[in-house]
């Protein structure tokens, strides 16, 4: 992970309709607390992801509210009942209002 806001979502390669799958997501972000200073003594302002919205198709399935207490380059994993072929999208919003998006396609293996 390098560029700010670069995000990945990982879902299983083979998904069967109705299966409970694990979704893993990571985004590159400094998650600065505002409590640190640079080597020159300049305060580093708080800069962190504060909100994550997860949509599956057109439905919001989860929403996470974070503080700068989540570690740098935040990872999150959660489950999802894969009951339709639809995109799974995630939108991360930080405290400066920058918005980062990523999506993964949920498609079923043909029986």
């Amino acid at each position: 992970m390098s560029a700010l806001g670069e995000a990945r979502i990982r879902v299983p390669e083979r998904i069967i309709r109705g299966e409970l799958i694990v979704v893993n997501a990571i985004i590159s972000h400094p998650m600065d607390t505002g409590f640190f200073r640079t080597a020159e003594g300049q305060p580093i302002p708080a800069y962190f992801i504060k909100n994550v919205v997860v949509r599956y198709g057109d439905q919001e399935v989860a929403r996470f509210e974070w503080t700068s207490g989540v570690s740098r380059d935040p990872v999150i994993s959660f489950t999802l009942r894969a009951d339709s072929e639809a995109p799974l999208s995630m939108v991360w919003t930080d405290n400066k209002g920058d918005v980062f998006e990523q999506s993964a396609n949920i498609a079923f293996v043909s029986a």
């Binding site: 409970l20 599956y56 989860a62 509210e65 989540v70 570690s71 999150i76 959660f78």
Partner: peptide
């Protein structure tokens, strides 16, 4: 909630039945 962290209410995870079960993992300070 992390009792002695500067921001003790560290995260909230709002869920719906679509997630199927509660199984969350992350990393915190």
């Amino acid at each position: 909630i992390v009792d002695f962290n500067p921001d003790a209410h560290l995260a909230a995870f709002h869920l719906t039945p679509a997630v199927g079960t509660v199984s969350l993992s992350t990393r915190i300070k």
